[in-house]
Design a protein around this nucleic acid. Sequence first.
DNA 1: TAATTACGCAACCTTACGGTTGCAAATATA
DNA 2: TATATTTGCAACCGTAAGGTTGCGTAATTA
Lengths: 106, 106
Amino acid sequence: MKRDIFQAIADPTRRAILALIAIQALTPNAMAEKFDMSRQAVSKHIKVLQECELIKPEHSGREIYYHLNPQKMQEIDNWLAQFRKIWETQFNQLDKVLSTMKKQKK
Amino acid sequence: MKRDIFQAIADPTRRAILALIAIQALTPNAMAEKFDMSRQAVSKHIKVLQECELIKPEHSGREIYYHLNPQKMQEIDNWLAQFRKIWETQFNQLDKVLSTMKKQKK
DNA sequence: TAATTACGCAACCTTACGGTTGCAAATATA
DNA sequence: TATATTTGCAACCGTAAGGTTGCGTAATTA
């Protein structure tokens, strides 16, 4: 089945994994130690993240270090762009209201 | 059950709904016309979006206009912030490579 | 008032998700 | 070579997700 970035980040464990390896590449075992679940459960999450290319494997002997793929994370940012204008407009309107209040105060 | 913004935007139909009402507030019926599914199915998605406050209802007689809540959308942006530094760093490194290549060309 | 329209709620069904356990393959170590 | 370690894959299970249909309720209209 085809994986989706948005579906990938829907799970809190997977978001935690992304936050972890954003700091430092980790092996599945190292990740599993951080969570209260089996290594296999964590490996399943890794598989999902890898399928949609949010993380990249780096083989080193029998260990595999997983790295974050920032380019893919940026796709979420790109999607958000269409809404960003809207909340920026709202903030500008808030600024107007605040400056109007200031003027009235004077 | 407690709803989550990230789980809410995991579904492509719900992302489409958000994109639609970002332009203009719509009623459930108006939204349902845009999708190839029943009105009730769309209403279920609306319920999910409303539970996590991504959209807000505005009652007008027997019609309900749903508006986007940009503040809540911004929470996704806030989460992305921790990764944004990383891809910006990568771009800076790309800039360095490019400027080095330019110098060598000269 | 009667009929229509817009909407939400509940029951139901199929499929996907997130977890488990067990096992096989590849690498490192004794 | 025999053993331990690291990982992935497959089977299984309970629950939640996403769709359907049917019905009840409130507001509009004939």
